[in-house]
Structure formats: structure tokens, C-alpha cells
Design a protein around this nucleic acid. Structure first.
Lengths: 341, 341
DNA sequence: CTGTTAGCGCCTTCAT
DNA sequence: ATGAAGGCGCTAACAG
């Protein structure tokens, strides 16, 4: 009935090529696959010609069905609208393509039910490996998958799920930030983070911040989560007397956006009244006020490395679980020029 | 050799379920598919139990192979790092899932060769429909695909490729912008656009701008592309005498980023020295200077509508090609407060 | 209602 | 070096 379903069925198949070239399907299959060396020059040429004349494309579904290799990698992303996720995903995709794999991205929108559906889906399509950047509730499903295919975590751990993990060295990053702020003369700090939902990197950053503050007698510090009280909380922080010049530390790009919004609404002069440093480096950081100092993550590398981990496991590496920590890079801009203005 | 390839093969199959439930594969298949009504209560229950006991998941590859229906939709995106593309993609994906489809996204990074590879790939995986947001060189490939499956263009046309098109009403959007700028007292305008590479929406915006200027005696206008001369060009525009207050019109988010950068470097006070209006509405627009006035695109709707077009075609609609134009929405911020400061 | 029988397009022994 | 045959997991007639 539909003009397309008919067309779909009429696609040229391996048999067509074989007949056209006057050879068997097996030979065509060998030509398609890695066994081209086993073919005589003459036959190879005839097959090649038949293929191009007919415009033949092997059907990956059928190949996957037979060989159990789909050349598909799945990626579970918590929030596709987070620039960090996009950047990592781009790195993963590039690495995938370079190695002949394709990437199927599933966005969970931070929703547990969607995560479950997507996991079922990815499994149904026989992906060969999975890259996970979500909270990973549904540990059952994940454990199931884990037993069928390699799995690499990005940025955030999943509770009691042992797997390779690629991400940022959060304690080191926080240390860089604190060193920088202290050196620039800031004394009273407030870390702004997205709400605690179990995200391990978020927790690490906050914990490192707290312990860092404790170890530095000169500094005072507190932490607030983003919620509808944020404006009030930040304004209170700015108003209250403290040990010295104040600065805000945004735990990621989302926090940086929310915080900057609050500062503007509060009529702050960015950034003379208060310092600001943010994790992640988004393209608009330089444009706001005197520019936002950033701790950039090597997102492309993180993505590429995540895929490489997967590839090693696919190739049979059964060694112990690894953790790869990348270093953040400090990019100084106007928002931490110092309390001495 | 690899522990995973073994696991992969040992996945529970339909036959396992059938034996466990003491029925035939056909019954299991009916249970899985839409024909559940044809089964007796007793058998259905036994199958259901066997499935849950064994943790059976149908293999979509095999289903797709047999039925010619993969429930997969492909999307070709020119630049995954463009927020517009992300937003649209999110809309598409949501619509897909709501209708039981999954989305395979391919990012071409504006590279023709990658576009070709991705097209081959999508075809190899038997996607049922394609959403295209690229320049669409390789018209041959696209025409081939077009004959096999429905295809919907987003935002930009592809030369001599007749297909449904979902995007923005660019002339109307530009008119809104010009009306707004003129009403606010700006008289000397400069449109900043990404380089002309054939992108139809880009051309439409520039053409509408030019003809709009011609129709308004009070206004003067010119156009510049983003290149390494951009800073010089914008500075020249700002320095030269003109018919009145000056404003910049950024043809999309990328242009807005580049332009704002230049203005900062040039020491402009954002936005007292010069007005600014930008197409797209990115989350950081409110944060820069006094805030950037935007023409927001309904990206989620655009994405959803693109998928719905596809779905209609998949359901057999062979009617004439349609074009869906959405309206931009003006969001006023500080950057067009007017020349009267 | 249910089971049997053929394949979908491809890969892989096993012969030749 | 090549071909024939069987099967990957599933669906779609056809019988019963």
C-alpha cells in the first residue's frame, strides 16, 4: 500500500550481485568481508563491478544477525542539552567512526523511566558496547547489560557498578580553583552546585571544596544548591560580613548560568563586586561582564578515551577495572582579577 | 576468546521461550507482536511467564530483517555543536519515542565526506525515514534514499531535492526584526551572517534583509560574513558616518557569539554604543551586557513537526510536497532599548 | 486458536 | 580458490 515499503523490499541484495557477476553468494560475501585475499583477481573485479553497477550496499542488520557484531555502540546521556554532554558525545562519535563503529545516542532527560526504555532499546538492537553518562538507576538492567557487553562510565560513577570510568580529576580541579582564588585575594567563598541527586562528580566536587576550605585557615566557604531559593541565598551571602573579599565557585556550566543570572538580577557589577570561577568552559564565558574564569575539561579527549576503553574490552581485555582521570585546565579571565580593584 | 562475544551468543532467544512455555515459536511471535488478541488466555499467560523467567528480549535486528521495519529513524545533522540543531534534535527524539521509533543521529561536522559515509551507514541499517539538516551535497545519494524512504528537510532546503520542509518563516522573522529596530530608532544596520555556503535559510535571511532595507527609506543596511576580517569590518561600520543610530543584526546564534566577541574586543559598552538583535535565543543572551534581544525559534515544535511529517509519509501519504513555516517570536532585551539613551 | 513451513540477507563450515 | 548448504532470530503465510 505504501510506496516505500515496496521500495524497501526491492533493494538490491547479495544474491543479485552474485548472479550479475556470475559467482556464488559466498564469493560476494568474501569480497564484502575481510576475506578478500582469498579471491582471484578476476572474480574480485567482476564482483566489484557488479556491486557498483547495482549500487549494492550490504545490509548491516543481516550481517549483525549472523555474526553477532553490529558495529553499534550505545551511549546513554542524562541531558542532551548540557554542553558538556554534547562535547563528550562529539568526542565519542569521532572515535567511533574512526574505528568503523556507529553511535546510537539515547537521551534520558534525567528521567528514570526513559532510562529504562532506552536500555531495553539498546539491548534490542544488539549494541556491542555501552557508554553511560547518567545516574544509572535501574542497576539491575545495567548489571544485565554489563554481563553481555563492556560498559564505560563517563563523568559519574554508578553505585555498586564496577566499570571503567573516564572523567575529570575533580579533587585536583577544585584544588586549582581554590589555589587560584586564594592567591587572588578572595577569602569568602560560596560554591553553587546543581541539586544533589547522587551524581558522583558533583559530590566529589563539593566534598573536595569542603575539605579544601578546612585545610586553608585563611578561607571560609559554604555550599548552596540550585533551587528557587538561590537568589535569596546568594544575596544573603553577598550581604553578610565575612573574612574578606567574596567569590563564587560554580560547580559546572549549568550552575554558572544560574549564578550569573542571579548576579545580574541583583544588580552586581560583573565582576567587581564578587569573584567567579566556573567548572567547564562554555563559549559564552568570555562575553559575560569582564569574562568568566574557567576550569576547562578536555571533553573531546574524555569522549575519545571512553570509546578506546570500550574498544580494548571488546578486543578481549579482561583486566581489572580502570579509572582515567583527566586534568582540568585553568583559563583566567576577568572574573577573578582579584579583590584589589 | 572474548568473554563478551560468548555472552552475546548465549542470549535467550524466541525458541528458548517457546520450549520453556511448551508452545511454538509462532505463538511467541504473536505474543510479542500485535497479534496478541489471537492467543488464548492460558497460552498467553504461559508465554508471559516464560519470558519474564528467562528475561527474554526480542532481537530487533532479526525483526527488522524479516519485516523490513526497523523502527529506526535517521537524522543527518550538519553541526552537532550548534544549539539550534541540538534543540531540534531533542524535539525529534521526543516525538520519535512517543511513537515507538528510535533515532540514530549522524553528525557530519559540515564535512561532505562524512555526510556521504553517514548516508551509506543509515541506509545499511535500514532506517525507515530520514530527517536532513545539512547542505545535502551528494544529491545522488539523497535521491537514492529519497526513492526508498520518506525524507524531511529541516531548516534548509537541498537544491533540486523535492521534499517536505520544516523550518522558520525567515522573511517574516526578518520583518519583525526590522520593524523592531526601526521603531526603536535605529537607522544604520549591519547584518552578520555565517559564510554563504548554500544554506537556504541563511540566504533567505540575507535576501529578506536586503529587500527589507530597500523598502524602508529611513534605513540603510549592509551585510558581512564571518571571516578573519570580521573585526575590521564591524569596526569600520561603527566608525563610519551613517544615517543615524547603528544596530547589528545577527543571522543566527553563531553570528551572535562572534559579533559579541568583536564588540567586546572593540571596547564597546554593550549595548549603549550599538544595538543588537539576534536570531535564535540561546540561554546566555540575557547575560551579556544589557541582554541580547532575540528572535526565538520554536525548536521543539520544529523537531516534532518534522517527525510527524515523516510519520504521515510512512503511513502512506503520497500527497504533494509540503512546507511548514513556523513563526519566530521576538524577545526584547536590553540590546535594543533604543538609540535614545 | 495454534503449529508447520519458508524464507528475510548474510556468514560460515564443509566440500570440491 | 570457489560453491553448496545450513542457520542466525524472527515473521508470515498456510494448514489444521
Amino acid at each position: 500500500m505504501n510506496s516505500f515499503s515496496a521500495a524497501q523490499r526491492s533493494r538490491v541484495t547479495m544474491l543479485d550481485v552474485a548472479e550479475r557477476a556470475g559467482v556464488s553468494k559466498a564469493s560476494v560475501s568474501r569480497f564484502i568481508g575481510e576475506d578478500r585475499a582469498l579471491l582471484s583477481e578476476a572474480i574480485a573485479r567482476r564482483i566489484e563491478q557488479a556491486i557498483s553497477e547495482l549500487g549494492y550496499r550490504p545490509n548491516q542488520m543481516a550481517r549483525g544477525l549472523k555474526r553477532g557484531r553490529t558495529r553499534l555502540i550505545g551511549m546513554l546521556v542524562a541531558d542532551i542539552r548540557n554542553p558538556y554532554s554534547i562535547a563528550v558525545m562529539h568526542g565519542v562519535e569521532t572515535a567511533c567512526r574512526r574505528h568503523g563503529y556507529s553511535l546510537v545516542v539515547c537521551n534520558t532527560d534525567r528521567d528514570d523511566e526513559q532510562e529504562r526504555q532506552h536500555l531495553a532499546l539498546l539491548r534490542a538492537y544488539n549494541i556491542e558496547g555501552l557508554i553511560v553518562n547518567t545516574l544509572g538507576h535501574h542497576r539491575d538492567e545495567l548489571l544485565d547489560l554489563r554481563s553481555e557487553m563492556p560498559l564505560v562510565l563517563v563523568d559519574r560513577k554508578v553505585d555498586r557498578l564496577e566499570s571503567d570510568l573516564v572523567g575529570l580529576d575533580n579533587p585536583a580541579a577544585v584544588k586549582i580553583a581554590l589555589d587560584h582564588l586564594e592567591q587572588r585575594g578572595y577569602r569568602d567563598l560560596l560554591m553553587v552546585t546543581e541539586p544533589f541527586d547522587g551524581t558522583s562528580s558533583r559530590i566529589e566536587r563539593v566534598d573536595s571544596f569542603k575539605s579544601g576550605i578546612e585545610q586553608r585557615p585563611a578561607l571560609a566557604g559554604a555550599v548552596v544548591e540550585i533551587d528557587n531559593q538561590l537568589t535569596a541565598r546568594i544575596q544573603a551571602f553577598l550581604a553578610q560580613p565575612g573574612p574578606g573579599p567574596k567569590a563564587l565557585f560554580c560547580a559546572n556550566g549549568i550552575a554558572a548560568l544560574a549564578t550569573t543570572q542571579v548576579l545580574r538580577e541583583s544588580g552586581c557589577h560583573l565582576f567587581d563586586d564578587v569573584g567567579l570561577i566556573a567548572l567547564d568552559d562554555l563559549d559564552w564565558y568570555p562575553l559575560v561582564g569582564s569574562g568568566i574564569t574557567a576550569l576547562a575539561q578536555p571533553t573531546a579527549e574524555i569522549g575519545a578515551r571512553a570509546f578506546e576503553c570500550l574498544l580494548q574490552r571488546l578486543r578481549g581485555d579482561n583486566g581489572p577495572v580502570r579509572t582515567v582521570d583527566f586534568a582540568a585546565q585553568l583559563i583566567e579571565r576577568g572574573s577573578t582579577l582579584g579583590a584589589s580593584r
